[in-house]
């Protein structure tokens, strides 16, 4: 699931747990322009499933990549449309 992209903005939600990583990701995506990419850095292990599920069910966003680095989980979401 690796594509070429440039990160526009980074959202740090380390230490925060459900539902904040998803809620704040949505808020940050709203502030981006089309085709820009948001990097989300979380420590909540549930964010792997939650952000993927959110991106799947939400129009106007595309999940580009997710990385499990053990203690940190990184998510890359592109704003579409």
């Amino acid at each position: 699931m690796s594509t070429e992209y440039t990160v526009t903005e980074t959202l740090d939600v380390k230490g925060e747990s459900c539902p904040m990583p998803v809620v704040k990701t949505k808020g940050a995506i709203d502030g981006l322009s089309d085709d820009e990419v948001l990097e989300v850095i979380a420590t909540d292990s549930g964010s792997m499933s939650d952000i993927a599920g959110w991106a799947e069910a939400t129009s106007g966003v595309e999940l580009l990549d997710q990385q499990d680095e053990g203690d940190v989980f990184k998510h890359y979401v592109r704003k579409t449309q």
Binding site: P19, V22, V23, K26, W54, A57, T58
Partner: peptide, 8 residues
């Protein structure tokens, strides 16, 4: 509620 709102 807050998560569903994030789903739009």
């Amino acid at each position: 509620a807050s998560t569903a709102a994030a789903f739009g």
